[in-house]
Design a protein around this nucleic acid. Structure first.
Lengths: 233, 233
DNA sequence: CAGTGGTCTAGACCACGGA
DNA sequence: CCGTGGTCTAGACCACTGG
């Protein structure tokens, strides 16, 4: 006997099935009527559950066609805009892939036990062919160990899709924290600016279903010609 | 004859009435049943309109009591957190209130014609008693001219509430753009740091109903002990 | 064309708040 | 206690998609 609304339970069940890959991204779910039958509720109730999952970005509805699992990892997930408001897709050049002991902050963010290891990826990202972002990515080694053996050239530049395609781990959410910082020696070299130049630091923690943390990414951005805009609309 | 959904029209009507101050912040709207009668639709339809206004933050519902107009201008509108995750309320010290010709960027953001004037307010904001933010606020003079005559000491530090209370102009939304920048001489003096120190610049455009721009605010923040976190959750 | 989601109705019962 | 919003049902008709 639970006192929770039916649509909450249905939502949870659907999320669990999504997490267990019962339906693949792009695939169509059963129709509302079908779902209503199987859950033994009315169409309106299942509709409410679906609506909330849509607003969470997990599903997408198409009138006349059906309800589909979103291929996650939108871009639209990339929040740097040119000063004139245009958006540009970044190119990436991976510098290095290595395995290290997780730092304190990485353990905290990724919820790793002590002595756990992370795969660390460093890369430079280009906007309009100019180096603008110096990026460090930390991944739990237990989840992604095959990546450690990859050649830097073979890492695709849209890694979220890669995680989903190769490991079945979709990124469904993120949390970002922003600060100002100063360019280190290495950053200054790769971004072709003076040491100490002001950079925008974006610390982004990506997580999958059940809010399991997947990736900690620290991007340090030159914002001389770009700005960060959050998705508040 | 419009082909738009009924709840959209109802939503628009309600927004118009809110904009015209038919109901004051904190006041209770008529019940769903009453509204359904007056609009000659079913309760479910009016409910959907209300739900969307709630998710836009214009209304708040309370089971057993009714649906109320939100007093806008939350805090929760303030996005700087201490590194340990705690949130602090900023104190303010207003330095100067003046009237100037609007700059190019102010005219663009506030949608002002040429030769229009703005009221410009500069202030320092303190977190935990330490100066952390240097802030410049630009307001269209036509909307807020009484402010120009105010003594700097008389400006409250939660100005959004002030706009709503004194001018009947509620802030219902904002758009933020972030960059890294370097402390100018004046900023370095008030924030007690070296010239050139990296600061986080938050450019915030606040608007009222019908997306009318109200205020352009540029906050330059020391992020040595704080971070910015956007409301993506 | 059949099947889907999108809108809308008119009821029902419950949980909560305030008088 | 009554009136409120919160949930849920079982229908209806429409608009769109695809074969």
């Amino acid at each position: 006997m639970s006192k929770r609304p039916l649509y909450e339970e249905i939502k949870e069940t659907l999320i669990a099935r999504l997490a267990s890959d019962q339906w693949r991204p792009g695939e169509l779910l059963p129709s509302e009527l079908k779902l209503a039958e199987t859950f033994e509720v009315s169409q309106g109730t299942v509709r409410r559950a679906l609506d909330e999952l849509v607003s969470q970005g997990l599903l997408a509805r198409h009138q006349g066609r059906g309800t589909a699992v979103t291929k996650h990892t939108p871009f639209g997930f990339f929040h740097l805009f040119r000063d004139d408001g245009a958006r540009e897709l970044p190119e990436s050049k991976t510098l290095r892939i290595s395995v290290n002991a997780a730092s304190r902050s990485e353990r905290d963010a990724l919820e790793l036990g002590p002595a756990k290891k992370v795969i660390r990826i460093t890369r430079v990202r280009y906007l309009n062919l100019e180096p603008k972002i110096f990026e460090t990515i930390a991944l739990p080694k237990e989840l992604f160990s095959p990546i450690a053996k990859l050649d830097a050239r073979d890492l695709p530049n849209t890694v979220y899709n890669f995680y989903e395609r190769e490991f079945g781990i979709p990124v469904v959410g993120k949390r970002e924290r922003l600060r100002a910082c100063s360019a280190s020696q290495m950053e200054s070299r790769y971004l072709a600016v003076d040491v100490g130049t002001s950079l925008l630091e974006i610390e982004c923690l990506a997580y999958s279903h059940r809010r399991q943390p997947i990736e900690l990414r620290i991007s340090r951005c030159l914002t001389d010609e770009h700005y960060y805009c959050n998705p508040t609309d």
